[in-house]
Design a protein around this nucleic acid. Structure first.
Lengths: 197, 197
DNA sequence: GTCTATATGTGGATAGAC
DNA sequence: GTCTATCCACATATAGAC
């Protein structure tokens, strides 16, 4: 049965996340992962061709979760950018292992397959489209903004994983960047929901 | 002789950098390192108590190099901040292995010793002092600036290791940040090297 | 000081029985 | 499908001879 197999694969990946959060992503071992799901190591190879295939499935899962997170925020305004940035910030900080797998390339030998990497590209395009819809069209501004946001995230995670010292700077960063790029507080509404002054 | 010993230690660390740049920092093995310096693995243990001790010496060396880099830039002005930022940017990007060891914590099990970590603290203080001398005293602004700079560095290294796409945004970032914090183009000179207008 | 030899452990992955 | 048994490569680190 095809369906049972997919379920088991899901359980394995789920256990892999759990284990990686305990012991780290690199030291994750096939043996211990098998033990975690009540199997022996060789049985895992009926579900995944290799350890890297497991990393790859985790990578893809993270990208899909990120896609959902991004798609939940679509207001083209300064307030919308603020909300989306907070959401992205929390997505990263809430799961350091997922962050390491998706955004840092520190697992020796692992590279995502083209299929999984395409999901990452899709997400970059999602972000780009949101910035464009907010009126930020310059690719330099896109690059600057992604650098600022990932910089805040990285500082928070590496210096104060449980705190909010850099998270509390997100609003200020949004304002600085918005002032610089001319992003206004409300979207230029083409409709009639504004009172005349 | 004490001096010969220190020299050999230096050669080992030098070879370790070289090897890590070829094979990566995590897969660095004591055997191959010994081979690189013309020894057998056990002999290395006369110079370093463990593999982590080797990482630690590399970490300390990187921090000392960073200290020298920082100390070369002391002009308290927007132009000075620009120069210092470029220097820091190049310091990071020019040696990804060193960057991974110093700023990312992705080597399983390794933590710097208190002595080496103190060097890292010293460098943070150096950077803080430079920002203060440039007139930027708010700790929030310090945090925001370090996030922006490390964000630019990280994007450059992970997306385009050989390019200059994010490096070319450094000047713009300096300007945006300087405008936001009120950092002027020239230091408030207390002397007389300015022509009257 | 440097070596040989080895202890001791880990890991990913496969063959072949049930 | 899952297991036992095993291969094989590789790791860090130590004992003890020279």
């Amino acid at each position: 049965m095809e369906r049972r197999r997919a379920e088991t694969r899901g359980e394995i990946i789920s256990a892999a996340w759990e284990l990686a959060r305990e012991t780290g992503l690199v030291p994750l071992s096939v043996r211990r992962l098998a033990q975690q799901v009540g199997m022996r190591a060789p049985s895992l190879y009926s579900y995944f061709a290799s350890k890297d295939a497991i990393y790859d499935a985790m990578f893809a899962e993270g990208q899909i979760q990120l896609a959902r997170t991004i798609d939940a925020y679509r207001q083209p305004s300064r307030a919308g950018l603020r909300a989306a940035t907070h959401a992205f910030f929390d997505f990263c900080v809430s799961d350091p292992v997922r962050y390491q797998l998706m955004f840092q390339r520190t697992i020796p030998g692992f590279e995502p397959t083209p299929e999984s990497y395409a999901l990452a590209i899709d997400n970059l395009e999602r972000i780009r489209a949101q910035l464009v819809s907010a009126g930020i069209t310059s690719s330099q501004h896109h690059d600057l903004w992604t650098a600022i946001v990932t910089g805040l995230v990285a500082q928070q995670m590496s210096n104060e994983p449980e705190g909010r010292r850099w998270r509390d700077l997100v609003d200020e960063a949004v304002d600085v960047f918005s002032d610089h790029t001319g992003l206004v507080d409300e979207p230029e509404s083409t409709s009639d929901n504004k009172e005349p002054t």
